[in-house]
């Protein structure tokens, strides 16, 4: 081996992504190695030039072109913008299969100032609350979670392989934080035997599941 730090490791050192042990070893090496010190300096110089350049329009437009998901996953700071928007959980119309909170197959859980509990029909929730779905899956192991907003725009939040058997409760591997955008929102679980493309998940969430695809949904209705 060369004995030098890899290009990627130099990047990760700059980004502060190395563990404390690796960072210490890397800094010891750089202090003794002219070549790696020069390589790191080249990266830092490139970083300064990069920061002085504008973000390309094609990148800037990405976020503005995205319809904000109904449940963007935000950090704790998002709580500060929680407005007095009230959401009410109710049963959705049923293009495929509709489940309300706590019916024995699918539950929407909420974490608010009073802790975490399963939502009940008619229960009010607020922007800033965290929502997570729990469910018993059909005999299909791939699970996708999508949201459909009041304008019919669908956003896919993630897809994963279920860990538990169909008869056992399991939770979606992530929570979603409610934002303050008005309008009804459906949270949709899409079950399938094999991994679906984003387009297939969107189609299923919008009421056109393909063969062998199973859909469950919960509607959050804002007052």
């Amino acid at each position: 081996m060369s004995g030098h730090l890899s290009t990627l490791k130099l990047h990760q050192l700059r980004y502060g992504e190395l563990s404390s042990d690796l960072e210490r070893d890397a800094r010891v090496h750089i202090a003794e190695c002219d070549r790696c010190r020069a390589r790191l300096g080249a990266q830092e110089q490139q970083r300064r030039a990069f920061e002085a350049s504008p973000v390309p329009e094609s990148i800037q437009q990405l976020e503005s072109n995205v319809i904000r998901p109904r449940f963007p996953v935000w950090g704790g700071a998002a709580l500060a913008i929680a407005a007095a928007v009230l959401l009410m959980l109710r049963m959705a119309p049923a293009p495929t299969e509709t489940i309300k909170g706590g019916d024995g197959v699918m539950e929407a859980w909420i974490e608010d100032a009073e802790g975490a509990h399963a939502l009940e029909v008619g229960e009010l929730v607020h922007a800033g609350d965290r929502i997570q779905l729990k469910f018993k899956r059909p005999p299909l192991q791939q699970v996708a979670l999508a949201g459909v907003d009041a304008t019919g725009v669908t956003e896919v939040y993630g897809q994963w392989t279920a860990e538990q058997e169909p008869s056992r409760w399991q939770a979606a591997p992530f929570a979603l934080r409610l934002d303050d955008t008005p309008g009804d929102v459906q949270m949709v679980l899409v079950f399938s035997k094999t991994t679906l493309s984003e387009r297939q998940v969107v189609a299923a969430a919008e009421g056109q599941p393909g063969a062998g695809v199973h859909v469950r949904r919960v509607l959050l209705d804002k007052e």
């Binding site: 950090g75 704790g76 859980w109 965290r130 939770a171 929570a175």
Partner: peptide, 23 residues
């Protein structure tokens, strides 16, 4: 309750399931 923690790394947000990062 089973809502997992939300961890922030860098300038973006990563959702963690239990102790293992997922999506």
């Amino acid at each position: 309750a089973s809502i997992p923690p939300i961890a922030i790394f860098g300038d973006t947000v990563r959702v963690q399931a239990h102790s293992e990062p997922r999506r």
